[in-house]
């Protein structure tokens, strides 16, 4: 065996080496000397395949900020996770969830996000669209409360409402039938000084949002303000801003009660 196998190994290795040398030459040619690479250049965008994937059961798309992502919930589910769990108990149908929430998103960023082809494709398939947005527009990481500048807040609200209007319009143009839920804001600072003032601001904000949603028959404003009103600290995470698991469960229950088949 020895002589034969050595010859085989020898030939095989020579071939391998030749192949690798050729490949290296090609790589160097391609990477350093191909100039403008003419023919192999990327042609412009071909439209993403429509092929609306047929999804069995109900399809839920969640958009928005850290509340959608579930920040503050130790299990990482967020209200979306608990909501789906709860709905799953009510029905035999399979519920599929796509969560596109990004921490820190403001309404402008969400508006950009729904211009993306893949997000649009998913929205088209959705039966329910859940949105949490606006918290970062208003609180801006606590900045708003330090300044308490009513002019600035009005400005922020105007920009937010403008964006939200466009978002709703965008979603509707993609999907006429889906029910859109917008989760309202609660006041995480209700236990602090100036609670009367912050409450006023949040209420106004929610009120305007709710009024905007009234334009659309199948858009529903879901209030959360009352849920957190009395014992806000029991339902907030240690950052005193995001809900904890219990808080998320409260929101999920409320939304679940609104969804019927």
């Amino acid at each position: 065996m020895k002589q034969g196998s050595v010859r085989f190994v020898f030939i095989f290795s020579l071939l391998s080496m030749a192949l690798m040398l050729f490949g290296l030459g090609w790589t160097i040619q391609n990477q350093f000397f191909s100039g403008d690479a003419g023919s192999s250049r990327m042609e412009e965008v071909e439209p993403a395949g429509e092929a609306a994937t047929s999804i069995k059961g109900k399809f839920v798309v969640a958009l928005g900020d850290s509340l959608t992502r579930g920040t503050g919930d130790d299990s990482g589910k967020g209200y979306i996770g608990y909501l789906v769990e709860e709905l799953q108990m009510k029905t035999e149908e399979k519920i599929t969830l796509q969560n596109f929430g990004v921490k820190g998103y403001r309404s402008g960023q969400l508006l950009n996000q729904i211009q993306q082809a893949e997000i649009q494709r998913q929205v088209k398939n959705a039966d329910y669209i859940l949105i949490t947005i606006g918290g970062n527009d208003l609180f801006q990481g606590g900045q708003t409360l330090l300044e308490m500048n009513s002019e600035k807040i009005t400005q922020a609200r105007k920009a937010y409402l403008d964006n939200l209007q466009k978002i709703l319009k965008g979603l509707r143009s993609l999907n006429e039938g889906a029910v859109i839920f917008h989760i309202g804001l609660y006041n995480p600072f209700i236990d602090l000084n100036d609670s009367a003032l912050t409450t006023q601001i949040v209420r106004d904000w929610n009120h305007e949002t709710s009024r905007l949603l009234d334009q659309d028959q199948k858009a529903i404003y879901v209030p959360t303000f009352d849920l957190f009103q009395l014992s806000v600290n029991d339902y907030l995470y240690s950052d005193k801003f995001h809900p904890n698991a219990e808080g998320y469960k409260l929101i999920a229950e409320r939304v679940a009660s609104l969804i019927t088949w």
Partner: peptide, 9 residues
């Protein structure tokens, strides 16, 4: 060198 080529392939 030859064995390295074999190994990679």
């Amino acid at each position: 060198l030859l064995s390295i080529s074999i190994i990679v392939v």
